[in-house]
Amino acid sequence: MDISHLRKEYTQAGLSKDSLSNDPLEQFSLWFKQAQEAQLPEPNAMSLATVDVDKMPGLRTVLLKYFDTRGFVFFTNYGSRKAKDIAVNPQAALLFPWITLERQVIVRGSVEKISKRESLHYFSGRPHGSQLGAWVSEQSSVITSRKLLAMKLDEIKRKFSDGKVPLPSFWGGYRVVPQSIEFWQGRPNRLHDRFLYSRSSDSAVDWQIDRLAP
């Protein structure tokens, strides 16, 4: 199928260095709020790229659950494919594809587990069904049918029939600690505005900002 005719000019906005915050997390927070205000579906959806022991890249969509000056946090099963990749290569990239706003944000950095206390705090606030689901799925493992999941869910419901679901030992959060963050704004004629924040030292507040060719 030839889809080379699909083409759109990006004309909504521009981006200049003078308009950027010196802190990429502040800039990200601003863009994230604008994505929410634009009522984009799942503005916290991000593509997570990892690399396995054989240097084969993996990519999937996960949900950002919170971010601060320390980095970007998501949650998963510690036996999942992404978790196994992180165990052998604790580096990752994130992509926020806010296409409706003609924007992208790309984060690259190291990955670390968050504390059990942090994971418990988040898990305790999840909907009851999502708490049960964390216990049911051996994420990324091969299963024979969906019926198996339903049977396991019934088993877990009985196990935690008192209503309180504990944090599974095999489930929790990871934080991507950014080493670089790129802000991409679409422009006409594919001459996009791209600005890259890079850590210029070990300081969490010391960033270098460079404009990149489109």
Rank of each mutant, 00 (worst) to 15 (best):
Q185H: 04
V177D: 06
K65N: 05
S141L: 11
W207G: 01
F74G: 00
G133R: 00
P97L: 10
S80G: 05
S29L: 06
Q39A: 09
E9Y: 09
Y10A: 14
D2Q: 08
K33N: 15
S180D: 06
W31E: 04
R146M: 11
L48S: 00
T69P: 04
S4G: 07
Q27C: 02
M151K: 15
R126P: 00
S169R: 13
V73L: 07
L191A: 14
R103Q: 03
L153Q: 13
E112T: 05
V176K: 01
Q208F: 06
V73E: 15
A93K: 00
V73G: 07
L149I: 14
P178W: 03
F75W: 13
P43H: 00
F183T: 03
T50K: 00
L212W: 11
K82V: 01
F67D: 02
M46I: 01
H128T: 12
A35K: 08
L25Y: 11
V107F: 00
P90D: 14
Q104E: 12
M46H: 00
L120Q: 11
K152H: 05
A49P: 03
E112H: 03
Y122R: 10
L191C: 11
M46K: 02
M151A: 14
K33F: 04
Q139T: 04
K17A: 15
F160I: 06
V107T: 01
V205R: 10
A213V: 13
K157P: 08
R60W: 01
P41T: 12
D54L: 14
V105M: 03
N22T: 12
Y10T: 09
V176D: 02
V136A: 06
F96K: 04
R211I: 12
N89A: 06
R199S: 10
E37S: 15
V107I: 15
L20F: 08
R60I: 07
K17Y: 07
L196E: 02
R117H: 08
E118N: 10
L167H: 06
P127D: 07
P127K: 04
V51N: 01
V142R: 03
R70S: 12
R199A: 15
A134L: 05
P24G: 04
Q39S: 11
R158T: 12
L6H: 08
L153Y: 12
I114K: 04
L63R: 02
S137I: 08
S201W: 02
I114V: 15
W171L: 07
Q179H: 11
S203K: 14
W98I: 11
S119H: 05
S198A: 09
I181N: 01
Q139E: 05
Q91Y: 10
Q36S: 09
P214C: 12
D154C: 03
S19G: 12
N44C: 06
K116G: 13
L6A: 07
Q39V: 10
V51Q: 01
A38L: 05
A38C: 11
S137F: 04
P57K: 05
F96Y: 02
Q104F: 06
V73Q: 04
S130M: 13
Y122N: 07
R126K: 10
L63F: 11
A13I: 06
S198K: 15
R70D: 15
L94I: 09
